[in-house]
């Protein structure tokens, strides 16, 4: 496993080994693509003293938290591993199944991209570190432990959510690719906003059917205790991550069994991307 991770990690150096403008273009492009999704929130945090119960610094904390979570998810799920519907629908899951290691290990190794997809994590760590030092209160080791646990939980929510929608490709290869693109857009577009004043119907949706509230808003709200009244606790984010992961695991396993029985539909007469 270690050698597989190392080999995939080295492949991530490819954009940089091209050198010159191509390497610079990759770094700038990757940074722009990822930071632009939180740019609106950063700009609002810079312009106003706060949004509702959130101060500017707390908003920066939320943005940093989300970028770190997304960065972690990207680093361990690069090369279409996060967009699993593509691998399933296009028959590329066969490449994973023929390997003499468990599916999860093969996917984790294949998606490992510590260099080429590190831009989000680097920007996120910087933003998070700055905001923690700027917050008007001190934090103990327990708080930092809770922070790390919640970051891991948020990254898990992102991966599990993408896999839950992506698993639809076992049944509907073409449709799932479209849905998976939209689900990825939901994560990137809506995960770094404070949802305190969102209309009730929208808020309910964002903490259930589309659980992006558990990626940024709820974990950071609990860590910073910005909520008016009782919160749901710092373990709410990781607990939601575990629940979602369990549901995703069950759905994915069921889909995998179907795939093992029928194989990829790509090579049939009406196959997707034949």
């Amino acid at each position: 496993m270690r050698s597989l991770l190392a080999a995939n990690g080295r492949m991530g150096l490819e954009p940089f080994l091209r050198g010159g403008w191509q390497a610079l273009g990759w770094v700038v492009g990757e940074t722009l693509i990822n930071v632009s999704t939180v740019l609106a929130m950063l700009l609002l945090a810079g312009r106003f003293t706060g949004v509702g119960p959130w101060s500017s610094t707390e908003l920066f904390f939320m943005v940093g938290f989300v970028l770190v979570s997304r960065g972690l998810a990207n680093i361990f799920s690069g090369r279409n591993v996060l967009m699993i519907s593509r691998k399933i629908g296009r028959g590329q899951l066969d490449h994973v199944l023929v390997q003499p290691i468990p599916v999860w290990k093969a996917l984790a190794a294949e998606g490992f991209s510590p260099f080429d997809l590190a831009a989000t994590l680097v920007v996120g760590v910087g933003t998070l570190a700055w905001s923690v030092t700027a917050l008007p209160r001190t934090h103990d080791a327990l708080w930092f432990g809770a922070l790390l646990l919640n970051v891991a939980g948020s990254a898990c929510v992102i991966v599990a959510y993408q896999y839950l929608w992506g698993a639809l490709a076992f049944w509907s290869p073409r449709g799932a690719e479209e849905v998976n693109s939209v689900s990825a857009a939901v994560v990137s577009d809506l995960s770094a906003y404070p949802l305190d004043a969102a209309p009730r119907a929208v808020l309910s949706t964002l903490v259930t059917v589309v659980p992006v509230g558990f990626i940024g808003w709820i974990p950071t709200r609990e860590l910073l205790q910005t909520a008016h009244g009782p919160g749901v606790g710092v373990l709410a984010g990781p607990a939601a991550a575990l629940t979602l992961a369990a549901i995703t695991f069950a759905v994915f396993r069921r889909g995998l069994r179907r795939y093992e029985r029928y194989g990829s539909g790509r090579y049939s007469d009406f196959g997707h991307r034949r």
Binding site: G175, E178, A197
Partner: peptide, 28 residues
Amino acid sequence: SDTPFRIIGLGLRVLQFGVLVGIWRSLP
């Protein structure tokens, strides 16, 4: 066959709109 995905995409716009409504009402 594209209809369900268009509906989901539209749902995303409604959610984004709802989130922005909440934020605009929270600005000083």
